[in-house]
Nucleic acid binder design. Structure first.
Lengths: 111, 111
DNA sequence: CGAATGGTTCTATGTTTTTCGAACTGTTGC
DNA sequence: GCAACAGTTCGAAAAACATAGAACCATTCG
C-alpha cells in the first residue's frame, strides 16, 4: 500500500521560532543543503554537500535539525524520501528572512 | 592618559562569515542584545537582556561572541565600554540580511 | 595613594552538539 | 518470501558551548 510510509513530524507554521531557524542555518553543511533545495526538492542522498564526506546518519541528522526548525519538509516517496524547502511557510512566518540568506550564502549567487 | 585603554579585536568587514553571524544571532539572549543595540550604543551592563539574570562574565561572553562574529563593536569609553551595532559594516558585507532579522525578532517590532 | 567601579579573562563544570557505526524500518523487485 | 535499497533511530565518544565564580586590569574619584 503505497503512501502509508512513516510520516515525520513537521512543526506548524505558527510554531516556528526565529532563533531555531537561524541556528539551523548557522551550520555550513545545513546552509548548503538549504541553498540546494531552493532549486527544488531532492532525495536525501542528493542533499549531501559537495566535497563533504559525511555518513548517512550524519546527513540524516542535519536534515532532522532543518526539519524540526521548520526549514524543510521530509516526505516519503516510494522507497526514498523527498526533502523540500518550506519556502512559502517561512515567507509567511518570517517575511523577507530567507531570500537574503540564500542569496548571501557561499554558493547562493546563482539565484 | 585617557583613550589608551585596551582595544579588543574586531574582524575586518571582508572577513565576516555568514554562518558565524547567523550562529551569533541564533541565541535568544544575543539576538535581544543585538535588537537593543539597533537603537544606539549601550554600556555593557545595559545590554543585559530583560528578565534574564546572567552573571557579568556570561554577559561579557555573549558580547564577545557577537564581537568576534562582527556583529558589534566594543570600544573603551572612560571606565566603561560602549557596545555598538556594526550596522553599516554588516550591510556592506551582507546587504539586506540584518534588517529582516531585527524586524522579526521577538521584541523588534518597534522599528 | 587607595577604594570603588566596569568589564575582561581564567578555570572549571555541566550541557548540548556533532559525528559515526550498528541496528532497525519500510519499500521495491525478483 | 527474500535480498537490496533508502533512510531513520539508537548508542557512544569527542568536541563545542554556556554559565558562573574568582582573579585580574584599567579608570575614576576621594
Amino acid at each position: 500500500m503505497p503512501g502509508s510510509s512513516r510520516e515525520l513530524f513537521h512543526p506548524d507554521v505558527a510554531d516556528l521560532v526565529l532563533t531555531d531557524v537561524l541556528s539551523a542555518l548557522s551550520d555550513p553543511a545545513r546552509l548548503e543543503i538549504t541553498c540546494r533545495l531552493a532549486e527544488g526538492p531532492l532525495e536525501v542522498a542528493a542533499c549531501q554537500p559537495t566535497g563533504a564526506d559525511m555518513s548517512k546518519s550524519t546527513l540524516s541528522h542535519h536534515i532532522k535539525i532543518l526539519r524540526e526548525a521548520g526549514v524543510v519538509r521530509n516526505d516519503p516517496h516510494g522507497r526514498q524520501r523527498y526533502v523540500s524547502l518550506r519556502r512559502q511557510d517561512l515567507e509567511d512566518r518570517f517575511p523577507g528572512l530567507l531570500d537574503p540568506i540564500l542569496r548571501l550564502a557561499p554558493g547562493g549567487d546563482q539565484l
